[in-house]
Amino acid sequence: MSLDPQRWKPGPLLPAADARDGALVFVVAVLCFLSVLAAIGALAAGRAAEGWSQALSGTATVLVRPRGDQTSDAAAAAAAEALAGVRGVTLARALAGAEATALLEPWLGKDALPPDLPVPRLVAVDLDRARPATADAMTQALRQAQVDASVDDHSLWLEDVQRAAGLARWAAVGVAALVALAAAAVTVLATRAALAARREVLEVLHLSGARPGMIAGLFERRFALMGAAAGLFGGGAAAMIALSARLAGGSGGISPVTPVAWADALAAVPAPLAAGLVAALAARLAALNLLRSMSGA
């Protein structure tokens, strides 16, 4: 059949995507998926670590020992009153005798305690999270009120927990960074392989006098789109998982250990951009490299 030259429109200089490109998109999508999941994991780990130390740093416990002339209840009440006046304390609440005994039960058993045993009383203190009262300030206030008591602001624990939390956070960030690096490396390799398969096209364009920048641009655009699509699929799938975890797990996320937030799904946003950029850059460099080798050494 003959063609009407007046209606002819130039065809695309690059062949349409084929099975090899499908494989490239699939591999990059899977790696983007893993990267985004790892990033969401890191965010959740960070939030969990934050939660542990906040839960500890927001409270203190005061142990009150009644003096000879005092009932336990009176001593606890005096302590609570003294503590309530300290700057940085939002709430000081004397635990009732029954509550104190209840705390001892797991260790001593239900009926092991004689009713007249002078059980030390506890005062639970909630601290202002922004500017918590120091243990020293509380101790001083108690002494002024002539209450014999010791303050535990959990600082001993807090340090350990914070260290553990920091470790968990960095481990999660490290894993996410490694997966992202692997994703970038595989994207580069897959892009190079896909490009090498188009060598003949590249060579004909080159020898026909096409500028290297123009040829590289063709491949760059093609692979940028493929990378972005892969990032969209992979990142999108990971975001869906994060969202459904948040949905299924309620406000705690999957569990208190990995509290996923709605906003964590945003970790997928950079995936199409990053994958597109890495693929575009890899395609550009690989194309320019191939072209250099074609000019003869």
Binding site: P5, K9, P10, G11, L13, L14, E200, V201
Partner: peptide
């Protein structure tokens, strides 16, 4: 060394296209 994904016409026109000539000027 033809470009297998392009038609006979596109293959023949390739150098003109690379030289940025206007299709209207060379189709005939």
């Amino acid at each position: 060394r033809l470009l297998e994904h392009l038609s006979v016409f596109d293959n023949a026109a390739l150098p003109l296209r690379i030289a940025n000539r206007k299709p209207a000027a060379y189709r005939g």
